[in-house]
Simulated assay, not measured.
Amino acid sequence: MDRPEDLTPIDYYYSVRSVYAYLGAARITDLAQRSGRKLRHLPIDLSQVVPAYGSTPFAERSAIRRAHQFEVEVKRWSEWLQIPVILHPVHHHGDRLLPSSCALAVQALSLDVDGFSLALLTALWRDDRDIGHEDVLSSLAEDCSISPKTMLDLAHSDQIQNQFQQCTDKAIAEGVPGSPTYVVGDELFFGQDRLMFVERQLSLETGF
């Protein structure tokens, strides 16, 4: 049996403003923990990833298609998973760089990036908080027992902010369709509705 430190991490591509990443966040964290895998957070810019994959950018999709994907289906999943969702948060659209850089900073500091990322997504989709604002990010850090100043100082560094583009470039190179996407070994799984296949793959590889 492989030791946890010998196992390849699960690559977790997601947008910090993705409702479907929010719906799957707690479950992918649980799967990683139960399988003894590290969850490697790779926040991405969907405005680059989606068209690079060949999909229609969100703003160019028909109103009926957007309503089905982001109202009807989100409501169904919210009810099924018993996870509260605000369908149209006021703060849905906004800066992606700083909150993504905060997640990368927490990860670089070897702190609780799983908990912080879940808090970030929950703040937007359950509580409609402005996750692009430093005060909100500081509050979320404190809730996760992370020093807000340490996190924000690192998040503002060129090193970390460049990582956000590097994650996006890596996603494009690997053919990531959107958010969330999970990669286990050579297997890519797109969507929180594919987490049962992620679990199966992890079970096949590690026997957990």
Results as ranks from 00 to 15, higher is better:
residue 1 M to T: 02
residue 3 R to Q: 12
residue 5 E to W: 08
residue 8 T to E: 04
residue 9 P to Q: 13
residue 13 Y to V: 01
residue 14 Y to I: 06
residue 17 R to M: 10
residue 17 R to G: 13
residue 20 Y to R: 06
residue 25 A to N: 10
residue 33 Q to S: 07
residue 33 Q to V: 13
residue 34 R to S: 12
residue 35 S to T: 11
residue 35 S to L: 05
residue 36 G to Y: 00
residue 40 R to E: 14
residue 40 R to T: 04
residue 41 H to E: 03
residue 41 H to G: 00
residue 43 P to I: 00
residue 44 I to N: 05
residue 47 S to M: 03
residue 49 V to T: 13
residue 50 V to H: 04
residue 52 A to F: 06
residue 53 Y to V: 02
residue 54 G to V: 14
residue 56 T to H: 00
residue 58 F to M: 05
residue 58 F to Q: 04
residue 60 E to D: 10
residue 63 A to C: 00
residue 65 R to Y: 14
residue 70 F to Q: 13
residue 71 E to T: 09
residue 72 V to C: 04
residue 73 E to Q: 14
residue 75 K to E: 10
residue 78 S to M: 05
residue 79 E to A: 09
residue 85 V to L: 11
residue 85 V to Q: 05
residue 89 P to H: 13
residue 90 V to N: 12
residue 93 H to P: 04
residue 94 G to Q: 07
residue 94 G to A: 14
residue 95 D to M: 15
residue 96 R to Y: 15
residue 97 L to D: 10
residue 98 L to S: 10
residue 100 S to H: 03
residue 102 C to S: 03
residue 103 A to T: 03
residue 104 L to Q: 09
residue 111 L to C: 11
residue 111 L to A: 04
residue 112 D to Q: 00
residue 113 V to P: 03
residue 114 D to N: 14
residue 117 S to N: 13
residue 118 L to I: 02
residue 118 L to G: 09
residue 120 L to T: 04
residue 120 L to E: 02
residue 121 L to M: 05
residue 127 D to V: 03
residue 127 D to E: 15
residue 131 I to S: 09
residue 132 G to A: 13
residue 133 H to E: 13
residue 134 E to S: 13
residue 135 D to W: 15
residue 141 A to S: 14
residue 141 A to I: 10
residue 142 E to H: 10
residue 145 S to R: 15
residue 146 I to C: 04
residue 149 K to D: 12
residue 149 K to G: 04
residue 150 T to M: 06
residue 150 T to Y: 08
residue 151 M to Y: 05
residue 155 A to D: 05
residue 156 H to V: 00
residue 161 Q to E: 07
residue 162 N to Y: 02
residue 163 Q to N: 07
residue 166 Q to V: 08
residue 168 T to C: 06
residue 169 D to C: 06
residue 170 K to G: 01
residue 175 G to F: 03
residue 175 G to V: 09
residue 176 V to N: 07
residue 176 V to H: 10
residue 177 P to E: 07
residue 179 S to N: 05
residue 180 P to H: 06
residue 184 V to A: 11
residue 185 G to W: 08
residue 186 D to F: 00
residue 193 D to P: 03
residue 194 R to G: 03
residue 196 M to Y: 15
residue 197 F to D: 00
residue 197 F to M: 02
residue 198 V to I: 05
residue 200 R to I: 10
residue 202 L to E: 02
residue 203 S to I: 14
residue 204 L to P: 02
residue 204 L to T: 06
residue 206 T to E: 01
residue 206 T to F: 01
residue 208 F to Q: 12
